[in-house]
Design a binder for these strands. Structure first.
Lengths: 140, 140
DNA sequence: TTTAAAGTTGAGTGAATTAGTATGTATTAC
DNA sequence: GTAATACATACTAATTCACTCAACTTTAAA
């Protein structure tokens, strides 16, 4: 039950962006430096964040990234899903999958499946309810 | 955010054991057949389940496995933890780890960490609350 | 108009993990 | 003694992870 470093770094980077929301465009070099993450790896991470519409980019000198909307409108769930795809503890309860694709072969009376569905929904509800602004507010 | 097939198969096998709780010793060959899981792989999965005290084993002909206690006293969280270790979305909120080991270097004001802690606790609370008996009761 | 700073893209890579197989040993019922 | 079972260890092919590397495009500023 681990998220990858993409998700982990992505959340940290987005929190950093939220903390510095008023600074305008923030170059990756700055995030890489302050969060101690490889800049080239961050580039890979920011690409799907941009494609998901969570951040805007500006190319060229003095360019960088900005949050696409205010921190209270961006949720951890958005970030994780952008970076790791649909949140699902097993393949057969992922959005793209239908019951029939289940490894277990039980089309509708798979008791285990109901656990995975509950777990999936629980995780999504939690992560969809934590905004970047919520996280900023936690700061003592 | 996936669990491994060990956890997935482990839960299915344990549900099977619960469904057939009154049958006495159940050999792996039967579970492997009915749940369509490799018997050799199941052997690897049952070893930590036994070491965690969730099942008892009897060797030799007519041997097999039985639940170590009744289905209402065995929880999905027990099974997952036995097979995958502590449930934690990132390493730095795993039981074994201390704050200082965190990749981010922020000893106590890591905002991201608080998300992972909430997520960890949420998942554990859910899985610690679903017993095998609960699952049997779901059966239409 | 040049230059440097920045984003964008795709390929490559070594290490680790996953999802199993394969093989052999020990124990027990009959 | 034999067959059925648990137990244990080693092996492996494929995949994923966590990056690095290299090339290109765009833009601001000198």
């Amino acid at each position: 039950m681990r998220i990858s470093t993409r998700g982990e770094y992505g959340v940290r980077a987005m929190v950093y962006m939220a903390l510095n929301y008023l600074d305008g465009d923030i170059p990756l070099s700055r995030i890489a430096l302050e969060e101690n993450i490889s800049q080239q790896y961050l580039e890979q991470i920011f690409s799907p964040l941009r494609q998901s519409g969570l951040i805007n980019s500006k190319r060229g000198a003095k360019g960088g990234y900005t949050l696409a909307r205010s921190p209270e409108k961006i949720f951890v769930g958005d970030i994780i899903r952008a970076l790791e795809g649909p949140i699902a503890p097993v393949e057969c309860v992922s959005d793209q999958k239908k019951n029939e694709d289940c490894r277990c072969g039980k089309s509708d009376n798979c008791l285990a499946r109901q656990v995975w569905e509950k777990l999936r929904d629980h995780i999504n509800e939690l992560l969809n309810d934590i905004s970047l602004q919520d996280m900023l507010d936690w700061k003592h």
